[in-house]
Design a protein around this nucleic acid. Structure first.
Length: 272
DNA sequence: CTTCGATCCTGAAGGC
DNA sequence: TGCCTTCAGGATCGAA
């Protein structure tokens, strides 16, 4: 479900709700996520104050003054929402109560997500974080970086863009959107891409992700922000989910295909 | 090493 | 209405 813009929008909405507050109680109803939840580790964060809410790739990191961070990954169907009160709904696997009385709720029907605690001292060496690529909104992300990462590879550029070891945060929706904006076919092999296309891909990646963050992310089905609000970028999608509809640039029908088992959308006329 | 396919899980949507 | 199939925003694992 959530790609970088959704997690970043979530981060922004949770910062003001969480920082300065303190975990008072935690209830784990279902521990079987992608990896089992460590109840005791979550329990040991009770009493700790939240001192920051950060994002790395698609991971949300809630820092505490205990020198440990609560890490949340939303998988496909996860939600993390801050409320003033209310009862647990279906598939709400973890509920935190904070000193302010506010609640933080993790809900994830498909259970592809993650909730765990990691020491700030070792988080960079954690297997989830150790091999992550560059942040697409950092200055080090550019055409040169993409070109260098592509050396020795020959697969399609869409899979390459979604490879979190190359650049983080681009998932299935934004991969199609970025390549449309860059006018590059998702099936184009990376060993046939020259400097001009890499530059367009880097520029389009930044532009699409930034616009999606501004719009509060994309809500296709499950995603909501930290206050339960849907994103608005679904209204700005150029190709994703628009099979057979006219291309916004040339009017040619948008084509849906399947790559690596994932729905892929492109304009066969605009993208080469 | 890369790349591909299968897999984890539930619910919504569409076809008949 | 109800049953069945397909599909869904992620990431990992084993195999080729």
């Amino acid at each position: 479900m959530p790609e970088l813009p959704e997690v970043e929008a979530l981060r922004e909405s949770l910062v003001e709700r969480l920082v300065g507050d303190r975990f008072r109680r935690v209830v784990v109803r279902e521990r079987r996520l992608r990896r089992p939840i460590d109840r005791r580790a979550l329990q040991r964060l009770v009493g700790a104050a939240v001192c920051g809410v950060e994002r790395r790739a698609k991971y949300l990191r809630i820092r505490t003054d205990a020198g440990r961070s609560l890490v949340v990954h939303l998988g496909m169907s996860g939600r993390l929402v801050s409320t003033d009160d209310g009862a647990a709904e279906a598939h709400e696997h973890v509920t935190w109560t904070l000193a302010s009385g506010r609640m933080l709720r993790y809900r994830d029907p498909r259970r592809f997500g993650l909730v765990y605690v990691v020491s700030d001292r070792t988080i960079e060496r954690h297997p989830d974080f150790a091999s992550l690529g560059v942040e697409p909104l950092d200055a080090t992300f550019d055409a040169h970086h993409l070109h260098a990462c592509a050396a020795g590879r020959r697969g399609p550029v869409k899979s390459f863009l979604m490879d979190q070891r190359v650049v983080v945060g681009v998932g299935n929706i934004y991969a199609s959107e970025v390549l449309f904006r860059a006018r590059v076919s998702p099936r184009r092999r990376v060993d046939t891409i020259g400097p001009a296309r890499w530059a367009r891909i880097a520029d389009a990646t930044r532009a699409v992700l930034a616009a999606a963050i501004d719009a509060g992310g994309t809500t296709i089905r499950d995603y909501v922000g930290g206050r339960g609000a849907e994103g608005r970028f679904q209204h700005e999608l150029a190709v994703y989910g628009r099979a057979d509809a006219p291309c916004v640039a040339c009017g040619h029908p948008v084509r849906r295909s399947v790559m690596a088992g994932r729905a892929t959308y492109a304009c066969g006329r605009c993208q080469r």
